[in-house]
Amino acid sequence: MNDAADEDVPPDPGRSGERWPVVSVVVPAHNEEAVVAAGLRRLLAGTAPGEFDVVVVANACSDRTAEVARRAGVRVVETPVPGKANALRLGDEVCRTFPRVYLDADVELSAESVRALVAAAGRPGVLACAPVPVLDLDGVGWIARRMHRVHDQLIAPFRALAGVGVYVLTERGHARVFPLPDVISDDGWVHGSFAPHERVVVPEARSLVRPARTVSAHLNRRVRVRLGNRQLAELGRSAAEGRLRLSSLGALVAGRKVSPSDAVCYLTVLLMDRALTRVRARRGGQVQWGTDAGSRAQPGG
């Protein structure tokens, strides 16, 4: 490895009596002590010993992320080098099998959903897949809650592999994506690597996504998304979201899928989002990958 990463290496599954894994799971984690234990518990609940090969990559952490992950019984790679793309590459290097699941540490995915994703990845012609996201709006502010509901419906037709917190690659699909470049939007890069018929959304699988609790936290995320989309465009990869139009919002209101007040909340935040993006882009558009405390629970585990 190129940056002095340290890995915990458990016994060979073949010698320990464990089964050979049916899937590898990479979890990049930067200061995720507050959420990583709960996510790993849900991921591993009901699994057979060795069924899932799980690697948590603790990158540039200043908290107990690595310790908490080790207590969950998974492999841990530690590196002082920050960056999600780097963490994904390091975890990918030590995976034991295909298909491979790439899972954000703050997103929860059950073993049943993983198995459904593995089954979908085995279908002819499928190179990549993702679950259907479910928003956990517990603790989200009133304005942010309205805005999230509108935004989720607007981007649903374009999302596929992006914005779900999880994507799965077959061995052939992996060859399209890796080595992963240093991009802001890794899921956008992955989404743009496949034609629509090569990527599928698996309705039997669900990922629990915790959106930003406040408008301020959401704006920080959205600026990052827009800058990431610009970077993808420069690299020749289309953004997963497509271009959101006011007519689409009008159709949601006309169809009574969202209320007029929901739409007003969304438009207000959208204008703030675009103004902040222009300001930050003029300043150079530098974005560092880190933890969004605005969607986190209190530390535990």
Results as ranks from 00 to 15, higher is better:
P28Q: 06
T47G: 13
R96M: 08
V23H: 02
V54T: 13
V56N: 08
V35N: 11
R89S: 01
R96Q: 13
C95A: 15
E78Y: 00
D92C: 02
D12T: 06
A87S: 11
A69H: 09
V25S: 03
D92F: 13
P28E: 05
R15V: 13
N31T: 10
D53S: 11
D63V: 09
P49M: 11
N86D: 05
G17Y: 03
A34N: 09
A85R: 05
L90D: 02
V68M: 02
L88R: 07
P13R: 13
V57K: 01
G73S: 09
D63Y: 06
V35H: 10
E33V: 14
R41T: 14
R70V: 04
E93A: 15
A34F: 12
N86I: 09
V94F: 02
V81E: 12
L43S: 10
A34L: 05
R42N: 09
N59D: 13
W20L: 14
A38Y: 09
V26G: 06
N59A: 10
V54K: 07
P99S: 10
E51K: 07
V56R: 12
A66R: 08
V68E: 14
R42Q: 15
V22K: 05
A66D: 14
E78A: 13
G14V: 04
G50Y: 13
G39P: 00
V57G: 02
P13N: 10
V68N: 06
L88V: 15
W20S: 13
L44M: 10
R71F: 03
V55S: 10
E32Y: 01
T47Y: 08
